[in-house]
Design a protein around this nucleic acid. Structure first.
Length: 497
RNA sequence: GCCCCGUUAGCUCAUCUGGUAGAGCGCCGGACUUUUAAUCCGGUGGGGCGGGUUCGAGUCCCGCACGGGGCACCA
């Protein structure tokens, strides 16, 4: 990217284009190095957050000054000259404060050095709090140190950046020019922290399992493939953590979770990034009903952590609807009485529903009906329960309804945010499910689940009955912060080169 | 992979039918000791890339790149 900028720089013959701006700023930096030995230090100790100063001096009356001493550091956002005095806005990670520079305080030389700084430069300031005649808490600059020079101009000081391409590719510019962007990623951190705090508090052990896996598994998705040179073997970036975490239950850890990146080699969209953050948690002696209660509590706490006040009702028990009933409601098709592939194909055709039926299997069509006609309508948090077995190779058969498994997916804001099972623990049934997946793979299904003998061996050691959940963190953040694109909540989303 | 839309100055945006491309902010110089989108005076900067049509292309046509939205795929 910088390459093309350099090229256009060479071609340009302008006197005040970007290359000239950079050259001017570079010359200023050089001048500072030569004339001010204190500039560009390796560290700058003793600073305090700007927000704290604003709070502490909120009581000052307009025009009231102090002789207190405070040290802050940050980036210059704006500069307003007034001859023998000047005002600068300084921003740190907590807040913005106005600096009041006066030649009678700083002396000619120092004042000149300060006012010749550029918007975007980083400085440290020793100053005395005051409230200006116009009523703004400010800092009288008694001394300052130039900490770093910005060679490139910052985004527009009022409008900021609105070009989404630049915002995603150069997130640092987005962050430095937009307080909301900074707040969003602080909120994301609080949500992740709340998730961990909840699980830690319930006795779950945070673990780390392999990202590079000899066999991928635990979800139906295409993997990224890579190669280990010394081992001379193919490895896959994980698509899920499920199988390793269940082996830990066999080992007796009983309650475990992992929060980290999964990778799926599939399309990019406003709800899909090729690498995304997932938390999976598993607990022995629990079923999918117990896990539904856990998810409700987890989301409730995440919402509280950022003071959520949107449209979603996070406090009451969420709505629960069965897979079959949800589809019947939305399409009028009762899957429990349309069990045959041809019959379902005909029912879809009769109602003129736009889902592909040519060569599609019963479970594929059923899944399509859910994602096309049900999922987009699920705005308030909702559990859809009890899926066809063919869609869920790791879920345990339903205790009372043949052909179904004990699985739910949680939806909110029209998208899936979590998926859970009463875990399949019977090694022989699991082996049959793998065999069924193998048959699908033989028919050309690219997302079929490969056999995992080590996982089967673990189940043969005896796995306790258990419930497990996977929650998409990025989507949870979208939901709680009201963003409609995953790229907004991922710092550096996947983009073309 | 397919369809639609977009790409003009460092940033945000204009530019009717093809006829020398404008503004605000920024930047450079000057004035100003309480400004806060500071103000005032002067100056400065540009058509994504590659072809084509035309006397003449930011504008019309073709291709490419990147982005946005939708579809397909997918959680």
């Amino acid at each position: 990217m910088s390459g093309s900028e350099e090229r256009s720089a060479d071609a340009g013959s302008s006197r005040h284009g970007l290359p000239e701006l950079i050259a001017e700023r570079r010359a200023k930096a050089l001048r500072l190095k030569q004339t001010d030995a204190e500039s560009f230090p390796y560290a700058y100790a003793g600073t305090e957050p700007i927000a704290g100063i604003l709070d502490s001096y909120a009581h000052l009356d307009s025009g009231e000054e102090t002789d207190d001493h405070h040290r802050v550091a940050g980036r210059i956002l704006a500069r307003r000259g007034a001859g023998r005095a000047a005002f600068l806005d300084l921003v740190d990670r907590t807040a913005k404060i106005q600096l009041h520079a006066r030649v009678d305080v700083l002396g000619e030389e120092s004042f000149e050095r300060l006012t010749s700084l550029d918007v975007g430069d980083l400085i440290g300031v020793d100053g005395a709090p005051l409230r200006s005649r116009r009523g703004e808490i400010s800092l009288r600059v008694d001394a300052f140190t130039v900490l770093a020079k910005a060679l490139r101009p910052p985004p527009d000081k009022h409008g900021g950046l609105s070009d989404v391409q630049t915002r995603y590719r150069r997130r640092e510019l987005d962050l430095m020019s937009d307080e909301d962007a900074r707040r969003l990623f602080a909120d994301r951190a609080r949500i992740v922290s709340a998730v961990r705090a909840y699980l830690d508090g319930e006795g779950f052990l945070e673990v780390e399992t392999p990202v590079l896996q000899p066999l991928y598994g635990g979800a139906l998705a295409r993997p990224f493939t890579t190669h280990h040179n010394a081992l001379e073997r193919t490895l896959y970036l994980r698509i899920a953590t499920e199988l390793y975490l269940k082996r830990l239950l066999v080992g007796g850890l009983e309650r475990v979770y992992e929060l980290g990146k999964d990778f799926r080699n599939e399309g990019v969209s406003s709800k899909h990034n090729p690498e995304f953050t997932m938390v999976e948690f598993y607990e022995a002696y629990a079923d999918y009903n117990d896990e539904a209660a856990r998810l409700e509590e987890l989301v409730r706490r995440a919402g509280r952590a950022i003071g959520y006040s949107g449209e979603l009702d996070l406090e009451s028990p969420w709505r629960r609807v069965s897979f079959v009933a949800a589809i019947a409601e939305a399409t009028g098709i009762d899957l429990s009485s349309v069990r045959e592939e041809d019959a379902l194909r005909q029912a879809i055709a009769e109602r003129g529903l736009q889902v592909p039926t040519d060569g599609a299997s019963w479970p594929q069509m059923a899944d399509d009906l859910l994602s096309k006609f049900v999922e987009p309508t699920l705005t308030q948090p909702t559990f859809v329960l009890d899926y066809p077995v063919e869609l869920s190779p790791f879920a345990r058969e339903h205790r009372s309804q043949p052909g179904l498994v004990e699985r739910w997916e949680a939806f909110a804001g029209g998208m899936e945010i979590a998926n859970a099972f009463s875990e399949l623990i019977d090694p022989d049934v699991q082996r049959e499910r793998f065999a069924a997946q193998q048959r699908l793979a033989a028919e050309g299904e690219e997302e079929a689940q490969p056999y995992d003998e080590l996982f089967l061996a673990a189940l043969e050691q005896g796995m306790p009955p258990a419930g497990g959940v996977g929650v998409g963190i990025d989507r949870l953040v979208m939901l709680l912060t009201g963003r409609d694109s995953i790229r907004e909540v991922v710092l550096f989303p996947a983009m073309r080169d």
